[in-house]
Amino acid sequence: MSDPTASAAGVTGTLEGHAGSPPTTAEPGREKPRSLGRDAWEDLRHNWVFWIASVLILILIVMAIAPGVFTSASPTASDLDVSRQGPGPGAPFGYDLQGRDVLARTIYGARASILVGIFATAFATIVGSFMGIVAGYYGGWTDTIVSRLTDVFFAIPIFLGAILVLTSFPSDENTSQVAAYTKVAVALAIFGWTSTARIMRSSVIQVKQADFVQAARALGASNSAIIRKHVLPNSLTPVIVVATISLGGYIGAEAGLSYLGIGLQPPVISWGIAISDAQTYLRVSPHMMMFPIAFLSITVLAFIMLGDAVREALDPKLR
């Protein structure tokens, strides 16, 4: 009998083209119950990209929580005698303009970047998912309104939008550190949720048509139960991938905003601020800029790699 997947197989007529896979799953088996998440994990486990990205991210998180582990130098102790001194014994990354240890400042700067990245991603994912589910699940007028709203926000570039928000509501010395992080994160998320919403919407529309959702409706399940048990778990995959990749993007954006002087403000330590401070001396003291930039690039890269690895593991088409 024709396999239902076969009709989608297409031009190459691979009715049994992926002959390996359907029969494998057909054998109920010997092993422990394997959920799809477990299968994905099995896949990730054998992916070196995933491990490199994870190790890098783990180091960064430890850096953000306990920067003291990586350096004994103080990021704020300044000694003008060593201003802009290059790398040397006792200071492998050298000193900045005010004679502060670049290594220490780079390590302490991870916290701001990671926190802003996580906050922004969390806000964008929650808002975007909610909007996407509402639009996709209820359809009709609700969908029209939510989708147009999404388009309006989507039309404004994230970075430009964040600049507008932050210049309208500037931080000053009285703003607490956490409030400052939150403000930058919210400024980014206000215009960043739209891509999540769009992805969630299309994924919900797809899942909504599956027979198991119809079956639940036929049993008399409420909309909230259907969304919670059937729609959300099955439409989350692409959102997770986007969230992971965009986390790197938000970290980069935070650095950009701080560089422009409208994101985080000194005395907060951040890679963006460090890069901004160093730009005037790029030609004479490149080390001041090189190290924060290297850390920033590696962080963004690590999250993008993780996102790619997760997508590969979760993509049922490759399975």
Binding site: T12, G13, T14, L15, E16, P23
Partner: peptide, 20 residues
């Protein structure tokens, strides 16, 4: 499905996906 009937045909035509 899975009996290999289509795979044989694809091999004849030379349109087997290689790899896998």
């Amino acid at each position: 499905s899975g009996s290999g009937k289509s795979v044989t045909a694809q091999a004849i035509m030379g349109i087997l996906d290689t790899p896998p």
